[in-house]
């Protein structure tokens, strides 16, 4: 994963085997980069799909909410008209309708809470993408040490260097921004 290109005089000092190793490393590095790019691209794709779905659901939600409000208003108007005729059975039916529209509106409130899953997912995906970047940088660091150390020293210190690089990645790890496991109303605290 080392991108550093050998200088011309350095190149002339390399033996045939070293050159082969260098070429192999480059092929390996390109493959590793592609591998990580593919993972990130898939995470982006998930993010786009989720956001697109939420956008569509939000449009549907607003439309259903408008319909529900109109229905509620219409029932109240019919109730007013029916009241003057004192038709008991019609009034009973209308009262039932009012209860249903009230329940619809309550359910729509819960839908708005649930629809926020898109934001939670986006933040988790961004966090995972950062972790993948850290992992990639750690691997590049290990590879850099392997390519710049002489082989005997590398063999002796290899485990230490890997541990150090992983430790570096762990210290760089950011706090997980989302801890929720369910899409339920979050807590509220006034200071």
């Amino acid at each position: 994963m080392t991108d550093k290109a050998p200088e011309n005089d350095e190149l002339s000092l390399h033996s045939g085997t070293e050159l082969e190793t260098d070429v192999n490393n480059r092929i390996y590095n390109v493959a590793v980069d592609e591998y990580f790019l593919n993972i990130k691209s898939e995470l982006n794709q998930i993010d786009r799909l989720v956001n697109d779905a939420v956008t569509h659901l939000m449009i549907n939600f607003e439309y259903i909410n408008e319909l529900s409000k109109s229905q509620h208003e219409a029932i109240l108007d019919i109730k007013k008209l029916s009241a003057s005729r004192n038709n008991k059975s019609v009034l009973e039916l209308l009262n039932k309708q009012i209860v249903i529209t009230d329940k619809n509106e309550q359910e729509l409130q819960s839908v708005l809470t649930a629809l926020q899953f898109g934001d939670l997912v986006s933040q988790l995906l961004a966090h995972t993408t950062k972790q993948i970047d850290t992992l990639k940088n750690t691997l590049q660091h290990i590879d850099y040490i392997r390519n710049t150390s002489d082989s005997e020293k590398y063999k002796q210190g290899n485990n230490n260097e890997i541990s150090m690089a992983v430790q570096l990645a762990v210290t760089k790890k950011t706090n997980k921004p989302v801890v929720q496991h369910e899409v339920q109303k979050g807590e509220i605290e006034l200071f």
Binding site: Q109, S110, T113, A114, Q116, F117, D119, L120, Q180, V183, Q184, K185, G186, E187, I188, E189, L190, F191
Partner: peptide, 8 residues
């Protein structure tokens, strides 16, 4: 104040 998402 502090409100944790998702909000109701």
């Amino acid at each position: 104040g502090w409100l944790v998402k998702p909000f109701n």
